[in-house]
Design a protein around this nucleic acid. Structure first.
Lengths: 95, 95
DNA sequence: TCATCTTGTAACCACATACGTCACACTTGC
DNA sequence: GCAAGTGTGACGTATGTGGTTACAAGATGA
């Protein structure tokens, strides 16, 4: 029953991980072992958090990989739910 | 701390949705609005449950789209965790 | 036996995404 | 001016989802 656009994980990542530690995108990308572009895309919501990236984040920041993926799931789901009416699907139960 | 390979969502889908209703793959695919191949791939673990498919499943079977995606997340995560040692990532916190 | 249904799967195509490099333009601070 | 940091576009590679088509194998019924 969430009505508002959940923030993409990149936004959370920037606010909760990069900013508190005073990390630049360049430095964080190097530490995570990905390209600056890859991290930038995530931070700006142009790419999602892949399972592998979730594990990288968990290793670097001591957080839970699951939490990053769940955030991504929520975000993805919100976008699909908006067009759920366009999906022609027959119902089997729960009339 | 899960040590065993979590079943792919397709396995669960077949056991908990198709079998109880006596649905054939062909019929279920038609009802879901996807090709028979698409559903078959998921059932046999050759494809994951995409966000859109999760919504289709929730519409058809009255289940939660989130639960399907979470199962998929767990499954994906399990595979990546197995190679987490190969990821060269610097740690910032939680020494 | 023959026809039909169901199923898995391979071949092939379209499209999207994750990721990389290289390059460019912009902003900020020295 | 110059360097650092940043966003982003072009371009290539790999992978994944999904569609169609077609084939082989098994079950089922006439």
């Amino acid at each position: 029953m969430k009505m508002h656009n959940p923030p993409h994980p990149g936004e959370v990542l920037r606010e909760l991980c990069l900013k508190p530690l005073g990390l630049t995108v360049t430095h964080a990308a190097r530490a995570l072992g990905v390209s600056r572009k890859t991290l930038s895309s995530i931070l700006n919501g142009r790419a999602g958090v892949s399972p592998e990236m979730a594990v990288r984040l968990s290793l670097a920041f001591g957080t839970s990989a699951e939490s990053w993926l769940n955030q991504q799931t929520q975000h993805d789901l919100w976008h699909v739910e908006r067009r759920r009416k366009k999906l022609r699907v027959a119902r089997f139960s729960a009339a």
